[in-house]
Design a protein around this nucleic acid. Structure first.
Lengths: 186, 186
DNA sequence: GGATTAAGTGGACTATAGTCCGTTTGTGTG
DNA sequence: CACACAAACGGACTATAGTCCACTTAATCC
């Protein structure tokens, strides 16, 4: 029941500087061509500061994606159906996959960085737990009798940024989307 | 149609030395705790030699897995049904997933290294093409009308070493297996 | 407003993957 | 066998992620 210890003023200033610098560099040079050193230099902070605040490369990507991610989570929790509550589970599932594909394909490089900066990174991100729980709940309703929890895991696997990159690179976005959706209508 | 230029004697000698050293170190210290420098030193070759021969870390892992991989591929192409030819496509698909899970879960760390050493590595490995083609052919037969090729891609996604590591770590091997198989019986 | 202290800072340092290139060695040829 | 040359070698070098810690600074309390 203690207050959350407030962020110090210099820390807040630096967080903003880093996020702005990272966004700028990623836009200009492409996510894959920007090193953490470069981000620190562009932001005018030390390397130690950068890592203390964001943990690692993946953490920086997550912070940049945060806003869009919250939007999607908000729409799922309290937006209009079929993405939000109110529609049958099967339809919500399809709507979720569509919306999630929009989100990932819209920021493919960043999401990829957040998921592949180190092995297993994807499954350690807080948001992953959210998506998995949501899918598991819908699956449990749509297909009673299935082992919903691990099945949700398995269904999210083709939505990994690394997989979508390969799929979209080979077939284009449209066919990639269709293939992933097809898994649901089995 | 020239002969394949034979491997030089010193090169062959070094290839064997490196593979033996890598196998030994991986067994003793665990795949994740062995650097390429350490492998080169243990094998008594220079770093350049190591990389010239195997390309990168992922390539070294692939070379070490080569034998087991060929075994599985042989069983698929010309072994007894249901893994080999002769059984209905649906049964062959299930048999493939089971056999593939045996293979990956039996060498999880090595396969993981081969798939995650760099983003997208999994999809660049030659063997991936084989698994994908096999699954696509079986899918085309088992479910006419589906877009078999990208669907095969999507079905292989939950079989990625990174995903299986997370799944098995959380639920144990048995439930992880069951969840992946359940995708097929949809 | 000065003292106290926990949080924050920055950059030198380490570890490691992967590159480069001058040197060595195996092999095929006269 | 000697020579020529392509192939292979090895280790110094670069790039980059991430750690560490001596120092600075913002907030708090009297």
């Amino acid at each position: 029941m203690g207050e959350p210890p407030a962020e110090r003023a210099d820390a807040a200033r630096n967080r903003v500087k880093v996020l702005a610098a990272a966004a700028r560099l990623f836009r200009e040079k492409g996510v894959d061509n920007v090193s953490m050193d470069a981000v620190a230099a562009e932001a005018g902070v030390g390397k130690g500061t950068l890592f203390r605040r964001f943990g690692d490369k993946s953490g920086l990507a997550v912070a940049l994606l945060d806003e869009r991610e919250r939007e999607l989570q908000g729409a799922i929790l309290s937006g209009p159906p079929p993405l939000g509550p109110g529609a049958p589970a099967g339809e919500r599932l399809t709507a979720f996959v569509d919306a999630y594909l929009d989100y990932v394909l819209g920021h493919l490089d960043l999401v990829r960085m957040s998921e592949t900066s180190s092995p297993g990174a994807r499954y350690r991100i807080g948001a992953y737990r959210f998506w998995r729980l949501h899918v598991a709940i819908l699956l449990a309703e749509a297909r009673p009798g299935c082992d919903a929890d691990p099945l949700a895991h398995a269904l999210l696997a083709p939505l990994a940024a690394d997989h979508l990159t390969a799929l979209a690179g080979e077939y284009g976005e449209a066919r990639a989307r269709a293939a992933v959706r097809a898994l649901l209508s089995c």
